[in-house]
Structure formats: C-alpha cells, structure tokens
Design a binder for these strands. Structure first.
Lengths: 344, 344
DNA sequence: GTGAAAGCGCTAACAA
DNA sequence: TTGTTAGCGCTTTCAC
C-alpha cells in the first residue's frame, strides 16, 4: 500500500482510469483532452503528489532547460562566480545545476570532458566550465563557455578578466608611489593567467625604465606556505624590495604575514599589492590594495553568453575579457626616501 | 559523418562489431567477456570518446552515487555551506550536484518538494535541503537532511546552529560590559531561527533582571534598508540605547552605518553585536563583534548524516544543533558611565 | 562468450 | 478525444 518507490505516470494513469499518453498530455498541456478527463487526471496527480521524473523526461526530449556549471571544486572563487551566475539565470526560464568534481586530483584534466559527455544531450542544454584547465575542444552538440581558462587560446567561447592589464596597473601604482625595487611573487607557472600577471609586472617595469632584477622574482605558486617562504627570502635579502606585488591574494596575505614576523610594518616599511581571487582579501590587516577581478560579473556574462549560444544566436564576441581595476587600500604607501628599506 | 549528437552505446557496438550488451559488460567490468573482445571494445570506446549517459544509467539503475543539494538561492550563506559540503563529500565516492531554484519567489515552499520528487529515485540517492521553509514530510524512498530549517520541529533529520544560545551570549556580553539599554533589531518573523534569536535576547535580559522595553525592539527583517530605518529611529529616540544586538549581520552593518550618519562612533558611543549569516561580516568597519555560526561545519555534518542515512545505518541523532560562539571584535566596548548615551 | 529482448519513465506519432 | 505503439540510452536476465 505504501508506495515506497516513486509515483510514476503509470500509477497516475491506472488510478485515473486513462492511458499514460493522456496523462502525458495533461502534464504537458497538450491539446486534445476533454475537460472532464483533464480535471480527473489533475485531481489524481494532486492526490498522489506526482511529479514527472526529470531523468526520464530528459532522456526522451532533448531539451531540458537546465544549464550546468562544472566546477573543479567549491572554493571562494567558484562560489563567488556562482552568485553571479545565479543572478544571470533569474527570469530566463533556465534552471541552474552545479556539478562539483570535489577537487579531485588524480585525473589531471579528464573529469570535465567526462562529465560533459555524460550530461550533454541529456541533462543539460549547455554548460559553463570553471576548471583549471579547459583544454577541451568544442563538444559536439553542446554549447560550452569556459570561464578563466588557465590555458592558452582555445576554440571554446571564453570569459576571463584582464590579468595583464591588472598586473600592469598594480605595478604602475607602486612605481608612481616612488618604488623602484618591487618584488614579485609569481603564481602557478602552468596557468595562463598567472603568466599574464607576470608579463604585466615585467612590462610595467620596462616601460618605466626600471631594470628587471631576477632576484626580486620568486615563486608564490598561489600557496600560502610557498609564498611565506619566498616572501621571507625576499625581505631578508641584502637589498630588499620596498614593495611587493603578489600574483594572488593568498600570496599577498602571506607576504604581509612574513613582513610582520620580521618586524616590518605594512605599509610603512613595505608596500604590498595583491590580486583578488576571492572577495575576502580585504579581511587582511591592513586591508590590502588589490587588483580587483569582477568575479561575479564573469559568472553573469558566462551565463548570458551561453544562453545566446544555446538559442542558436550567432554571437560575434566569443572571447570576452572583463576589465580589472586597482582598489587602493591601506597596504601601500609612497616611498619615503628618508626611511627607505634597502641597504639599512 | 560528423556525429552531431552524442555517441551512444550503439555506435560503439556497431563500430566494434559486437552487441550493445557486450559493450555494457565492458563498461561495467562484468565477467564473461573474452580478452580480445574486451580490448577491441575498449579501443573503440577510446577512439570514439564514448561516455555512458548519466541519465540513461540512472533511469535503469536506481543507485546513482550522486547527492543533491537543493538551495533556494546561491547567496553567501548557501555558498559558504556548500564549501563545507564539498569538504565532506571528498573521498566518499559520491558526487555533489547543487540545484538552485534561483531565488524564485512565487512558489512559497513548493519548489523543494517538486524538485525532490523529480530527482529522487532517479538522479540522486539523497538530498540536502537548504531552503527557507523545510516543511516537507519525509519523502518516501529518498533520504533527506534539512539544514537550518526555519520552521518548527519537523520529521526530517536536521542540522542547525544554536540560535537561542548565540543570542543569549551576545546579550550577556553586552550586559557584562555594563549596558542596560540594549536595542534589538529583529529578523524575519516567519523564520524560526529569527524568533529564537529574539527569545535569547529577551531571556538574557530577564535573567539579568533588566526590564524589557518594547521601544527598544524594532524590525530589521534581515534587510539593509529596513534595518537602517529602524536603527535610525532607535538611535534618535529620546532615551536611546547604548548598545544594539542585531539579529543578523546585514542588520548589524546597517546599524553601524546609521550610527555613523548620526555622528555616533562605534564602539565609543554605541556598541553593536551582529549574528553571522555570512563570513564577510568582519569586513565591516570597525570589525563586528558577532555570534559565529559554523556554517561550513553545518554543510559538512549534513553530508555525513545524509550518507549514513543512505547507507541505511540506524542513526540515533537526527536533529543536530551545532554550537555558536561569540567573537568579540572592535564594535563593542564597556559602557563608560561618564559618557553614557541616554538623555544627553 | 555473446546477443536478443524486455523494460526503466516518459513523449510523440499515429490509429481508433 | 483517447489509446496503442515505438523508442530515448542503458542494463540485465536468459537463451544460444
């Protein structure tokens, strides 16, 4: 008597004394159902609390009105992006489902392709990929947008932020404050975005006529411990930098920590600029001057672009780069030449 | 020639010159396949880049190894919770998929039930519900855990945090600092958690022998504007409070803002305590003293509980309340009777 | 060791 | 207006 398993269209049909086809018509508001039948079927549906199985429907139809977002993991960057995506999806008639690979290592870049194949043509009408490496070629039949693909130019439509320009802004800011010995904590060398940040740093220095000092460039690897170690080396070196530009916020926070340990005061003794990957960067004491990535807007744009693609619209701009800006907070200061840090 | 639609098991079978049944056996590592056949099929699978359709599989099998999290919207609270859930899922063999209703209004509480029915028995083995109102009775056949169900005791297993105790802690903190006129910005009256916070406030006052002044209790409704207005009224009233406890962080931040507008300095002229719903509360200047909800841990516990339930383990504790703590930051201060705020 | 056939829950022709 | 039928992609007996 107790329906331990799910109520199916057949249960409804049997109870209402009609065929499953008729029930299907009722569910989908198709024409050709007598008013009395309609009412009866509706009543039974309510009575049984029937809901059509999304899975069976997707298997049959090939349109699902669901957009998938594939993220490598649910961490600050991706969750921030999700908020933007959620904003964008509102009122579009699409639903959003997020698939998290759970930060699994092991499969270097395979899971996104696997997942996409398993879902495409069935559960989702299109997908947004937020994964470290988006090397996949366009998947046949399923529109895809990659967000911040950390690898070089790809054939899939893309949303990213202007890492190059952001890094230039950061470096120029420090130069304008009078700094000449500016350290750089690099990101992960395998990520395109990290390389762009480095390029921006180098380019700004060169443009200002400041010679590149390789000793001022260390690996931060977006990792708190690696960054702390590198920052420590940097700050205890003979001719230490008076400012540091860190390729992401984790590195920047680690740098502030290292400075404090050495008794250096930020920003009085050392200026620090970070590059936002998470919205919480400002939590740092003192609040960090950072390059601001419009993470939420990236999520927003990814969804709108994808929806156009699904709709079959011919989109001209398929590689969108959103601009970054510098947010000056209390971790940078003009270089006071009288108390300058080098050669104490 | 170009397979515009997805590669199916039939394509593989045809190409390998075997039946679909054989391919299925290969995919699922079933016994009874000759080594040569196995190799050939595997080769074709690789060649064609075939992946089994998750949808078709779930329709057939009834175990999916997928856990669903249903959230009303992707906002700071839910995304924070997701991080905890993602932590918990790691290494369990389950995948996580998040369904967002996109903050749709209109359907007061219907969508969660609808979605759950549409997914259960098919796409997910169980679900975590993070929705304002979790009034649904246990769904037949699908284990469910509700997080922070804002409605009264329900039959479904539950994870929440100790709103009552947290509110008491906050109020006691202010009392210990010498405050007697303590304002309260209430949350949404329709939410159980908000009412508990109010009860905690009242109880602490009563326990301390401080009479309740209804004029000090205003509606904040978890809304920045409503809160700002109420805070303004509170702070411009004849005998204004020297401290305010706000039922959530949004209200608390609005209170600080209102105080600043009136030229009141926090914490010198007014102490403010908030109740965390998001991790960013500390961004406020000055950093807020808040009641800390272990949001991530709630997500974590929800998943582990759900997995036990799916596994059919008999779980004794199905209503778990995680403790809250007070985090004292720079928005509260002992009442200096010489500069006390009332009757200036 | 392999394949034909039934069926998961649903929809869309087409018949009746 | 209604029901019958075929089939979406897959798994699983059960013959061969």
């Amino acid at each position: 008597m107790q329906p331990s398993s799910r109520v199916t269209i057949r249960d409804v049909a049997a109870r209402a004394g009609v065929s499953v086809a008729t029930v299907s018509k009722v569910i989908n508001d198709r024409y050709g159902v007598a008013a009395t039948t309609l009412a009866k079927v509706r009543a039974v549906i309510d009575e049984l609390g029937y809901e059509a199985s999304l899975v069976a429907q997707s298997l049959r139809n090939h349109k699902t009105n669901v957009i998938g977002i594939l993220v490598a993991d649910l961490e600050p960057f991706s969750t921030e992006l999700l908020k933007g995506a959620a904003d964008a999806i509102r009122g579009t008639g699409y639903e959003l489902v997020v698939y998290s690979a759970g930060g699994r290592t092991g499969e270097p870049s395979g899971w996104e392709k696997r997942y996409l194949s398993r879902l495409s043509g069935t559960l989702v009408d299109g997908a947004v990929l937020v994964t470290p490496v988006a090397s996949l070629e366009a998947v046949p039949g399923t529109p895809v947008v990659a967000v911040d693909p950390h690898t070089g130019p790809s054939t899939v439509p893309t949303i990213d932020s202007d890492n190059l320009r952001g890094a230039q802004l950061a470096t120029e800011h420090l130069l304008e404050l009078g700094h000449r010995r500016i350290g750089f904590l690099a990101g992960r060398p395998d990520l395109e975005s990290a390389e762009l940040r480095k390029t921006g740093y180098l380019r700004a220095l060169t443009a200002a006529g400041v010679p590149i000092d390789e000793d001022l460039i260390r690996l931060g690897a977006y990792d708190p411990e690696v960054s702390a170690r590198s920052a420590h080396e940097l700050l205890t070196s003979a001719d230490r930098p008076t400012a540091v530009f860190a390729a992401n916020d984790i590195s920047a926070i680690a740098t502030v920590g290292a400075a404090e340990e050495l008794g250096l005061c930020v920003p009085d003794d050392l200026s620090v600029v970070g590059f936002d990957n998470v919205p919480e960067s400002a939590l740092c004491t003192p609040p960090l001057t950072t390059v601001d990535q419009p993470i939420r807007e990236m999520g927003h744009r990814a969804i709108t672009l994808l929806i156009s693609l699904i709709g079959g619209e011919s989109v001209q701009e398929t590689h969108i780069t959103l601009s970054t800006g510098l947010v000056v907070r209390r971790s940078t200061r003009a270089l006071d030449t009288s108390t300058k840090g080098g050669r104490p």
